[in-house]
Amino acid sequence: MSDEAAPASTVSRRWHVLGFVVFTAAGFYAIGVALQLGLWRQNSPGEGLFPFIAAVAMTAFAVAGLVSAWRMPRRSAAAANRGDLAQTLIRVAAYIFGLVFYALALNPLGFITSTIVTVVFILRFAERYSWPVTLALAVGTAAGCQILFVIWLGAILPFGYLWESLLY
């Protein structure tokens, strides 16, 4: 994993601090829920005991992480080029948007349509391929997966409410 560790180390102290703050907050929330569930019932552990132990441990280690992150050197000078960073963030966000859209579109649009739309979106708008290449790859992916999953392996993938109501 050495080559992936590289971008990780360029992330600034601010992100480390933020990450551990999130874990600490989540830990305190979980402790609250666990206490509400109850730690003990007659003769046996209650619903909250295990969540409580795990949450307390998590909070403790998160606070420890927060302390060490706080002590990290500030490295504003070494920060990456802002333009590059924005580009990267936009691409990652586009992928996440594509994934979420894909998941939500599966039932209404059906497997084939939502696959084509998602792949077109990713390749055209995140990766900036030309339209012909994009369309060829999108249709190819959808067709290939339809053959592999549905026809060959008998998986049941959604047909799409939209098509159902239009066709029948």
Binding site: N107, E164, S165
Partner: peptide
């Protein structure tokens, strides 16, 4: 979105 399309398709149905 899922619900809108579902409502539409249910209406059509």
């Amino acid at each position: 979105m899922r619900t809108t399309i579902r409502t539409l398709s249910l209406l059509a149905a």
